[in-house]
Amino acid sequence: MKVSVFFAVIFLSSTQVHAQKFSTEKGTISFFSDAAIEDITAENTMVGSLFNSTTGELVYIVKIKDFIFPKALMREHFNEKYMETEKFPKALFNGKLKGYNVSTKGEQNVTATGKLTIHGVTRDVQVPGTISFDGGKATMKAKFMVALKDYDIKIPKLVWQNIAEEIEVTIDFAYKPMK
C-alpha cells in the first residue's frame, strides 16, 4: 500500500516536472474583412503564446495595438472606434487543444476549445486547426470567423467604408520548446 501510494505520488509529480511546454513571443494573427467598398487586412506578428503538450493547455495574448494595417487611418479607426484599445488593450484565449499525438510526424487536425476574450467579452469557442511537431518545435495553424456582434464591437453609423460583420481570423504560431 505504502509503496503504491509512493509511486502514485512520484508519478503525479513527475508528469508535472516533465511537462513539455512550448512558447512563442512572435506568433502571427491576421484578419481579413471583406466588404463592398474596401477590403481590410491587418497583421499582428507579436502574439505571445504558451502551449503545454502534456496537458494540452493553450493560452495566447494578443495586444490589439500591435495590429498593422496598410493605411494609418485604418489603424486609428480600428483602435479608437472598434476595439476601444485603451479600455480593452488585449484579446485572450485560454483553453485546451485536443486530438494530437506528440510523436506523430506531419500535420494533425486538432480542435481548440476554450474561452476567447475580445473587446472585453468572453465567449466559449471551439476552433478547428492543425498542429505539427518537428524536431522539438511545434507549429499551430487555424482559420476561423469572428462575428463582430458576438463581441459587442459596434460600427459607428457615420463610417462610410463598410466593414464586414464577420471577420476572418488566421492564426500561425511557430513554437520553440521551453526549458
Partner: peptide, 14 residues
C-alpha cells in the same frame, strides 16, 4: 490550477 498558471506565466513574461 495549472491552466490559470499558464496564463499568469504568459502575462508575467509580457
Amino acid at each position: 490550477f495549472a491552466q490559470e498558471d499558464l496564463m499568469k506565466e504568459l502575462e508575467s513574461s509580457q
